[in-house]
């Protein structure tokens, strides 16, 4: 049986791992290569690296980091942040990334999703969606944000998710902008709606504060994987503790 994945996320800027609340107020959480090796030893199922600065210099630094990480970490690596062309994608894949996450560039140029999927395979292309709730009660709705959450687009998140899959992406990385950094749980409704609307795996992101939140995202949110940053970076919980907790509650987990 396919297991549910636990994915620590390394938000990076200037070659260091940082983590903030709703994408601001960053705190340094350490060296990415060391942290990646640590999570690998702890049996993390995958790692995601996001360059939240999304600058050209950041991209070059990220290439070096991915090269170093892939020499010692033998689990899938997803890299995103500021990648705007298939040449950028190729660069990261050649450095040792397995999957490329695209967010703003995919919204601005949906053809990039198709191009990436055709050149490198759907399994390489992850569309990252930052969503913010705009409608509540009987008519819940979420809109897509771009540019690191700074720019509302008016695009419906569920519709965009379906379109991204139709364009050929192999996975969705879904972040709730309302929940991110608040440690009060994932946006379960958003996660469930998108997970039910698409045929590809969905990674839930944004809001993990305790292990029950991971469980809820997998059960009520119907996510295929859960991503978290601060609860792991600041050692609130270890990956092993998270896995033991979920396994005890009947979730299929790789020990």
């Amino acid at each position: 049986m396919l297991t549910k994945r636990i994915i620590p996320c390394l938000d990076m800027t200037g070659g260091r791992v940082v983590k903030g609340t709703s994408f601001t107020n960053l705190r340094d959480a350490g060296d990415p290569v060391e942290l990646a090796a640590f999570y690998y030893r702890e049996s993390a199922d995958e790692l995601v690296f996001l360059d939240i600065g999304a600058t050209p210099e950041g991209r070059d630094t990220m290439v070096e980091i991915v090269e170093r990480v892939s020499e010692q970490v033998f689990i899938p690596l997803t890299v995103g942040g500021g990648l705007r062309s298939s040449a950028d994608m190729r660069h990261m894949l050649e450095a040792g990334a397995d999957k490329i996450a695209i967010n703003t560039a995919a919204v601005l140029h949906p053809g990039l999703v198709r191009e990436g999927a055709e050149r490198f395979g759907s399994q390489c292309i992850v569309v990252a969606i930052d969503a913010r709730q705009t409608g509540k009660g009987d008519q819940p709705a979420w809109e897509v944000l771009t540019h690191g959450g700074r720019k509302p687009t008016g695009i419906d998140a569920v519709e965009w998710a379906k379109q991204a899959v139709a364009l050929g992406c192999g996975e969705l990385l879904l972040t709730s902008w309302d929940a991110d950094g608040h440690r009060a749980g994932y946006d379960l409704e958003l996660t469930r709606r998108i997970s039910e609307a698409v045929t590809v795996p969905v990674i839930a992101s944004g809001g993990a504060g305790n292990l029950e939140h991971l469980y809820q995202a997998l059960m009520a949110g119907k996510a295929d994987a859960v991503l978290a940053a601060s609860i792991f970076h600041y050692r609130t919980y270890s990956i092993r503790e998270a896995k033991e907790y979920l396994a005890e509650r009947g979730i299929p987990i790789r020990k």
Partner: peptide, 9 residues
Amino acid sequence: KTPHMGWNQ
């Protein structure tokens, strides 16, 4: 769900 993506026995 396709691709079959993740860890399996």
